[in-house]
Every structure is written in C-alpha cells, then in structure tokens.
C-alpha cells in the first residue's frame, strides 16, 4: 500500500496524515475489524461490481486511512459521508482524509 504521493501541482499529499496519526490513533479491535471488512470487500464484491469511484483516493482507500487515523467511530462516520459524496452530482476528484483534529486549548 505504499504510494508516491508527492504532488507537483500543490495538492497536499495524503500520506503524512497517516504517518502522523499512526502514532496517535489507538488501533482498537473495532477499527481493525472494520478495516478487515473493507479489505474483504476489496477482494470479493469489488471484483463483481467493478470500481466506479469518482475520487482519489478511492472510497475504500479512504475508509482504510480514516479508520487508521480517526478510529472506528469517527472513521466509519467519515467513510459514510465520503460514500454519500461519491455520487454523480459531486464533481469528485482529489479528496484526502482530513488530518487528526488538534487537541483543544
């Protein structure tokens, strides 16, 4: 899953968020299980229905990163919102997972 994500045209890279957050977000059992589901989807259902994502990174990549960075609850919510965005009325394009929310105060 390593990707070259440096972009010449000023679009921010997605990878640093994940690196930063890997230390922050606790790898809970729930998040791990959900990531397992996403992986299962990628190796089964996606083969039948094909990939139709309008975004980069794709919705399943987005889900994996959101779950790593933000944990099970927030990650699921963000993924759900992303899938809702991924429809013909949204222009699509580059849409990375937001970085971790800085602690208040």
């Amino acid at each position: 899953m390593t990707r070259a994500m440096t972009r010449a045209d000023g679009v921010p890279a997605a990878e640093p968020h994940a690196v930063m957050a890997a230390a922050r977000a606790p790898a809970t059992a729930a998040a791990t299980a959900l990531k397992g589901c996403v992986h299962a989807y990628r190796y089964t259902l996606r083969g039948i229905i094909g990939s139709h994502c309008r975004f980069y990174p794709s919705c399943s990549d987005y889900a994996l990163e959101a779950l790593s960075v933000h944990g099970a609850a927030r990650g699921t919510l963000m993924t759900a919102k992303r899938i809702l965005r991924c429809n013909p009325w949204n222009p699509g394009g580059y849409d990375p997972v937001p970085g971790p929310i800085p602690p208040k105060g």
Binding site: I49, I83, C86, N87, P91
Partner: peptide, 11 residues
Amino acid sequence: KVNPASGCLPI
C-alpha cells in the same frame, strides 16, 4: 467539473 465514473453510492 466532469467525471466519467458514476460513483460508489449509486453502485
């Protein structure tokens, strides 16, 4: 503002 893919939601 164009995109050939129909998106994940409809699928």
